[in-house]
Amino acid sequence: MEQMMKILEEIRPDVDFANERKLIDDHVLDSFDIISIVQEFNEAFDIEIDVEDLEPDNFNTVEAMKELIDRLRNAD
């Protein structure tokens, strides 16, 4: 979780990730950010986030992102 927050804050230092509930729906993060986040997550957690996983529901909150990462790690 900590590592995740570090990555996120590095990409968008101006966003309050802990408290935002609609990161995607409110356009806080744009598609460039998503790509950066996915790249970093993939490298950091050795997972492969697929195009199919790029759903607003998976990225709207930090908790959702964590869930996604956990799911992908366990799947292997």
């Binding site: 790509i35 986030i49 195009v51």
Partner: peptide
């Protein structure tokens, strides 16, 4: 474009 071109290409 985002869902069917941009994301798949970038990733």
């Amino acid at each position: 474009m985002r869902d069917y071109i941009f994301y798949p290409l970038s990733l």
